[in-house]
């Protein structure tokens, strides 16, 4: 079973939908945590171990790009997996995010099937 999953999106409805899609894939996690922007997410990472972080890109205050830049990949504080969900990420942006340490970039609208194939690729589910 995976540890904590942190869902980052300024829209409460989107966070609900992402959680619903994630649980529909069969992924089992200790706890689902939420953050409304990158700043809240980075605060959570300082105090809580997170195995999987799922974030939107287009958010007010600290957006998804700044969140990715703020994660110290390779350190114990960093999530094991970071999945970016975005309506805008082009192939070039996706490649740039992955070069920074992001595990996968998924295009909106997401579905349980699109997340399932990502999680299978990351060996999070069989």
């Amino acid at each position: 079973m995976l540890g904590n999953v942190l869902i980052v999106d300024d829209s409460g409805l989107s966070r609900r939908m992402v959680k619903k899609c994630v649980t529909s894939t069969g992924l089992e996690a200790s706890e689902y945590l939420e953050a409304a922007d990158g700043a809240e997410a980075l605060d959570t990472l300082k105090s809580t171990s997170v195995d999987l972080l799922i974030t939107d890109l287009n958010m007010p205050n600290v957006d998804g790009y700044a969140l990715v830049d703020g994660i110290e990949f390779g350190t114990p504080m960093a999530p094991r997996f970071v999945v970016v969900i975005s309506s805008t990420a082009s192939e070039t942006v996706a490649e740039e995010l992955i070069s920074k340490g992001v595990s996968a970039v998924v295009c909106k609208p997401i579905s349980p099937d699109s997340l399932k194939s990502v999680f299978e690729g990351l060996d999070l589910i069989e």
Binding site: S11, G12, L13, N58, S87, T88, A89, S90, P109
Partner: peptide
């Protein structure tokens, strides 16, 4: 929450336009 959802829908549709 409905407005939140409408915002997310326009975000998704405009994201497709943007791409």
């Amino acid at each position: 929450e409905i407005l939140d959802g409408l915002a997310e829908i326009i975000n998704i549709v405009a994201g497709a336009l943007h791409r």
